[in-house]
Amino acid sequence: MTLATGIGSFPGTEQRDFDEALRLVLGELGEGALPFLPEVPGRGVWAGMVGRTLGLVGELDADLQPAGWRLTGTSGAPALDQRRARSLLGQDLDALEEQASAYSGAFKVQVTGPWTLAATVERPRGDKVLADHGARRDLAQALAIGVADHVADVRRRLPDATRIVLQLDEPALPAVLGGGVPTASGFGRHRTVHPPEASDALAGVLGAARDAGAEPWVHCCAPDTPLALLRGAGADGLAVDLALLDAAGHEALAEALDTGGAVALGVVPSTDPAEPPTEKDVVGAVHRWLDMVGLDPGEAADRLVLSPACGQAGASSGWARQSLALLRSAAASLS
């Protein structure tokens, strides 16, 4: 059975926008789909993908600086902003438990991956964590512990859920591997991280999610996503923007499906399109892709997931709602 899901982020600026997004997700993507914990980054940096994830990391302390999030050490006394991020995520999980404690299907949560964190968060002495081999290793290890605790918390709140998916968001990974992340001055670029190190850090976090009872996926909606590396690191699912794939990407996704992995195809726009696609458009695009890579729709359908191309924080609330309904109906047609 083909499922429908979202990448994670939704439009809005208030707590009530999160509550409405959660109701929408549980309503449109209930049993027979893949509902997820929405993110509403418009509520502030504490609710953004990086702040939300740093709120999970209990082994390292962080605070907000004019340039963004910065690690401050391992004292066990997180700064006000990190505590606020942790509290906000806790409120969101409380709302999930209140609305869906009896939910008995699959459910997805999203966490920023170790390389996007390393490319975004600063070291205590300045510049990105990416600049320091030991710091990026420590951050990945702390994230793995936080992810395991997060999965356990979600399982406690959704005791009847048959399947928990943990999605690592890694939009910066291609830039990390390609030496494209700017230094603090903006005049240089951080050194390339070699694939074996990138794979090891990802494997530690993905393995922690699996050991905690979740199915680990990785999402990246940037060009040149290293899909084979992600599979080699232990990703059971890959979430991509179908329009950005090159020949190697198509081949890697086909191989993932052929060997039992899950593939979430981004097939509807993440922001309001000039002309919204129809169910027929979406189903046709998926069939054309399956035909191109030589996969039988009947055999691949159970491992396919349909999603927006990327997060929807920049969409209108109307399109966020309409796109989920469209994905759900297209997935039903494919099934």
Rank of each mutant, 00 (worst) to 15 (best):
P269F: 06
T271V: 15
A256C: 14
A247G: 00
A285I: 07
E275D: 12
G261H: 11
E255Q: 14
P273C: 06
K280W: 00
A254I: 00
L244A: 09
P273M: 02
A252S: 14
G266R: 10
G266N: 02
D241S: 09
E255D: 14
V268G: 01
P276M: 14
V268S: 08
A247N: 03
A262D: 13
G260I: 01
H250E: 15
D281Q: 07
P269W: 01
V263P: 03
A256M: 00
V263I: 00
D281H: 13
G261C: 04
T271W: 01
A262Y: 14
L242T: 11
P277H: 06
A264D: 05
H250I: 03
V282A: 07
K280S: 12
E279V: 15
L238S: 02
P273W: 06
P277D: 03
L244P: 00
P276Y: 13
L244Q: 14
E251Y: 05
A256N: 11
D281E: 07
L242C: 01
V263R: 11
G260S: 01
V263F: 02
A256R: 14
P277I: 10
L253W: 04
E255H: 15
T278D: 03
V283Q: 04
E255V: 12
V268H: 08
G261W: 02
V240P: 04
T271I: 12
E255Y: 11
G266Y: 10
A239N: 15
G260W: 06
D258A: 15
A252N: 10
E275Y: 09
V268D: 01
E275H: 12
L244D: 01
V267T: 10
V263L: 06
V283A: 11
L245T: 08
V283L: 05
A254D: 04
G261R: 14
A239M: 15
A252W: 11
L257P: 04
A274Q: 15
G260V: 07
G249E: 04
P269Y: 01
T271Y: 00
L265R: 08
T278M: 07
P277G: 02
A254E: 08
E275F: 10
A254F: 02
D258G: 13
D246W: 10
A243S: 15
K280Y: 00
K280P: 02
A239F: 01
L265D: 09
A247S: 11
G261E: 06
A264F: 09
L245W: 07
E279S: 08
